[in-house]
């Protein structure tokens, strides 16, 4: 009987740790919104809330893609530069040829992003080199490519088809398109990761690459897929970026990779792989975006934003680590007590 009680205990303990993470993000969000609104009532005005959701949408898309990669125990630092490259090249195409529609823009953007993801995936899964170094390299290669194409020019909203711009700022029934798209992608990804056998493979690979190999799971193919998704979603995010802002220079989303990684890790996706959900990652993205907006409202120097992003990332990995150590110690004691 001891096995059962120990087991049930282990289950509820781990469950609790998980839920604690998502609950604490929600609590932090509520606290942040309450304090900010207390200082400045305009924070919760219609426009303010809409801005937060519009800004968060793009980050959520990137966070969903990044979640796939981090769950498999890898990382993709190149997403920021992919967003920049896609936003600029797609904008360039549309500005040159007004006949092209939104569908073309989205397909082109996703395709460019997927090609970048493919390159990363090939290098990481077949070259067996540390993902962080590879994607740090491709970050600069893609960024350089972007600058090379842009050559100091910028894309202006007036050159873009109005349909695209209305996708970025319009909506149906008062709900803007961007959050709709982000939520749709998030739910689809979350459902796939939870309810499909191939989705569970991502967790298995990140949880123990060695066991995954022994179990005959297609490790390389899944890692490739993760990068492909991350790249493709970064491409989609690039198109939405263009649609939302209209005006785009070469280094549009420079440095965003740090925001994305922070959002995902703050949202409870363990940097050591195998743990977390896209919902948590999306919550993390929402929290980071809200902090940025709150800083403006609270009249804090906006230059604090990057430092806070970094600090939150460090806090999240430290808390994860401390919790993991604690759980391990409790389980060790419990096993000792019940007789292992």
């Amino acid at each position: 009987m001891t096995a059962v009680t120990a087991g049930r205990g282990g289950r509820s303990l781990v469950d609790l740790v998980f839920r604690a993470r998502e609950l604490s993000i929600v609590a932090a969000l509520v606290l942040l919104v309450a304090v900010t609104t207390g200082v400045n009532g305009n924070f919760l005005s219609g426009q303010g809330v809409k801005d937060i959701f519009l800004n968060a949408s793009i980050l959520v898309l990137l966070a969903v893609g990044q979640s796939f990669v981090i769950i498999t125990k890898n990382i993709d630092l190149s997403v920021g530069s992919v967003v920049g490259l896609v936003a600029f090249t797609v904008g360039d195409f549309l500005a040159a040829d007004h006949g092209r529609g939104i569908v073309f823009a989205v397909i082109l953007g996703v395709a460019i992003g997927a090609v970048c993801g493919l390159a990363n995936g090939l290098l990481v899964s077949f070259g067996r080199v540390p993902a962080l170094v590879v994607t740090l390299g491709t970050l600069y290669v893609i960024q350089g490519l972007d600058h090379f194409i842009a050559h100091g020019r910028q894309i202006n909203a007036v050159d873009l088809p109005p349909a695209l711009l209305s996708m970025g700022n319009g909506g149906v029934l008062g709900i803007p398109y961007l959050p709709l798209i982000a939520v749709l992608v998030m739910v689809a990804a979350g459902y796939y990761l939870r309810s499909y056998a191939s989705g569970r493979d991502f967790y298995a690979i990140g949880s123990s690459p060695e066991a995954a190999r022994l179990a005959g799971l297609p490790v390389r193919r899944r890692v490739m897929t993760a990068y492909l998704l991350s790249g493709g979603l970064a491409g989609l995010a690039g198109v939405l970026w263009l649609a939302r802002f209209g005006t785009v220079v070469a280094d549009a989303a420079g440095g965003w990779e740090l925001q994305v990684v922070s959002a995902v890790v703050v949202g409870g996706v363990a940097i050591t792989g195998g743990v977390g959900s896209v919902y948590g990652a999306a919550l993390g993205a929402l929290l980071l975006t809200t902090i940025t907006s709150a800083l403006v409202v609270l009249k804090v120097d906006p230059f604090w934003q990057q430092a806070i992003t970094g600090a939150l990332l460090l806090l999240a990995i430290s808390v994860d680590r401390l919790l993991a150590l604690r759980v391990a110690r409790i389980l060790r004691r419990r096993n000792a007590r019940h007789g292992s």
Binding site: G7, A197, Y203, A204, S208, A212, L214, A215, L217, G274
Partner: peptide
């Protein structure tokens, strides 16, 4: 044994060949 510590016991048994419902869902 080499296990997947983050997955449930049942998933450790059935990983890669989980029983399927409609639409190939687990």
């Amino acid at each position: 044994p080499t296990m997947f510590p983050d997955l449930s016991v049942a998933e450790n048994i059935f990983i890669g060949r989980q029983p399927r419902a409609a639409l190939r869902r687990i």
